[in-house]
């Protein structure tokens, strides 16, 4: 079963070049991608390659100019109760407590107050932050804030999770801890996750498949299956298979980057 089918998607932006003239910038160009039901798929690529644009389109935050996107075999809706997005910048409401933030999605779905409380408390426990229920986001560390943001999205049980470099602003240790924690949570109910990152290691340890995008071409160039056994733990990072896959992905990414660079240089 396919969760998302993107066919020949095109997205253009109008920007001003160095001379101040308006020029067309094509960010997604004949972009194709299938996301399977219940899989963990990462899109890996350098900044500016269009991966976040695709995620924003799926989240209903951006439009596309051409092509077709199906979610559950139906055309993508701009407004939907079935998606959850986790941002790099956490996006927590600073005037609400941790628990209040967790209730946001449930409030939008008009879940009654008492039920809201109960569900929010449950998910807070899932990410191990029950003690901080009545604190404000500004009183938490970055890692804790991102845990809250993840719990907030899980709490309203969307079937498609979109994550835009969620661990990008965290220090290395916290980042690795949260990766394992995300896996633990995901293993429990296997919701479909589309994860954006520019870290090769992160993409490999988390994903069932890694889609590689390169700069300025606006397409998925290659999809690699990651057949590391699950459930995955910290130790996977040190295994020979991990190193092998890492090497393969690294070469793919480098070759694509070199190709992109030479064709870009040739085109101008």
């Amino acid at each position: 079963m396919l969760k998302v089918e993107a066919r020949q998607v095109e997205r253009n932006f109008s920007i001003r070049n160095s001379l101040g003239r308006k020029v067309k910038l094509t960010v997604l160009d004949h972009f194709d991608l299938d996301i399977r039901e219940g899989e963990f798929l990462s899109i890996l690529g350098p900044s500016g390659c269009g991966k976040s644009t695709f995620l924003n389109i799926l989240a209903g935050l951006d439009d596309y100019d051409r092509g077709e996107i199906l979610v559950d075999q139906k055309p993508l809706q701009k407004r939907s109760f079935d998606r959850g997005m986790v941002f790099q910048g956490y996006a927590l409401l600073p005037w609400r407590t941790v628990l209040g933030n967790l209730e946001l999605g449930l409030e939008i779905r008009r879940v009654p107050k008492r039920e809201r409380r109960a569900i929010a408390s449950h998910y807070l426990e899932l990410v191990g932050l029950t003690r901080f229920a009545n604190q404000y986001p500004s009183q938490l560390s970055g890692g804790m804030r991102q845990r809250v943001a993840i719990a907030r999205v899980l709490a309203y049980r969307p079937n498609l999770l979109l994550m835009d470099e969620p661990f990008g602003a965290l220090d290395a240790q916290t980042r690795e801890n949260l990766q394992i924690e995300l896996l633990r949570i995901w293993e429990a109910d296997k919701k479909t996750i589309l994860f954006i990152t520019h870290s090769i290691d992160e993409a490999i340890i988390l994903s069932d498949r890694v889609a590689i995008m390169t700069a300025r071409q606006g397409q998925i160039k290659e999809i690699t299956e990651i057949d590391l056994p699950r459930p995955r733990t910290e130790e996977v990072r040190n295994s020979a298979e991990f190193a092998q896959i890492r090497q393969k992905v690294w070469i793919l990414l480098r070759d694509e980057a070199l190709k992109a660079e030479s064709c870009y240089a040739g085109g101008i």
Partner: peptide, 14 residues
């Protein structure tokens, strides 16, 4: 902060 509005939008807020 635009991301606050975006996050509510992605949750399906009116």
């Amino acid at each position: 902060d635009k991301v606050l509005i975006q996050s509510a939008q992605s949750m399906g807020a009116s």
